[in-house]
Design a protein around this nucleic acid. Sequence first.
DNA 1: ATCTATGCAAAGCTTTTGCAATCGT
DNA 2: ACGATTGCAAAAGCTTTGCATAGAT
Lengths: 141, 141
Amino acid sequence: MTADIARRHTQQRQVVLEELRKLTSHPTAAELYEIVRRRLPNISLATVYRNLEFLTKMNVIQKLETSGSKARFDGDVSSHYHVRCTRCGRVDDIHGLPADLVGGEVSNFTSYEILGHRLEFVGICPECGRRQEEDDVTNVS
Amino acid sequence: MTADIARRHTQQRQVVLEELRKLTSHPTAAELYEIVRRRLPNISLATVYRNLEFLTKMNVIQKLETSGSKARFDGDVSSHYHVRCTRCGRVDDIHGLPADLVGGEVSNFTSYEILGHRLEFVGICPECGRRQEEDDVTNVS
DNA sequence: ATCTATGCAAAGCTTTTGCAATCGT
DNA sequence: ACGATTGCAAAAGCTTTGCATAGAT
């Protein structure tokens, strides 16, 4: 059932995929490039972009383009939602939440043929929340 | 309750707002620029961007940045969801759907402090759907 | 041998910014 | 008069693309 991952099985494509799968941080192309570079110092950013696009089309990874100016990538293609921190931009998975959170009643309110939806939560990550509290204490004057 | 729209009440800002409010098409900055240009031929794209940003901050309009590479703008700030056509990129409002479609149960599944969510539906707009059917007929060979 | 994939550099596209001039108050 | 706003052009930031070379099957 797994899509065949590559027409040409190159080291670059393999390493891009492996490193992405090691991460739960949903990196941008540039972030992943820096990581992959530790194993393949001569790889180019363009190759990372091309492989990320290719793997997305093959449905081996997924591209998260809900908001923000940079696309982020997720090595986990199972359907799940994400939270984005409004302070630091970090993106995390939300596990356990039903993937069909948004019902089919939508079709009654539009003339579009609904194929799906994109949902992303926004909030403050624990780290930024903690930093906030520290600042609050520090700023008492 | 309306935020005061402008510190300086310029013609450019006024026309940008008026033209945006006439549209239900959620134009991009460049699209709106072309429209505004019909009334103010010398306006610059930068001014359109600056005013869209300003009006967004004033909460007079809203910026839709759910997906796609270009931001789109909505002269209607009431909270409502949108559908995006995967074929032509067009974005329409969905009216009548409860704005709190996505429940608060989310907090049980993440350590983030949840502030809100971005939800956008994707599908095929009536026009593209019709075009599809025509093509299907045409392509019978 | 063939044809995809890569690296590099350049280009593309959307958005932002520096600056001097202009306009609103 | 003062300072926000404008127009222009340049810059910035992310992503894509052309092209010759290298590499996979």
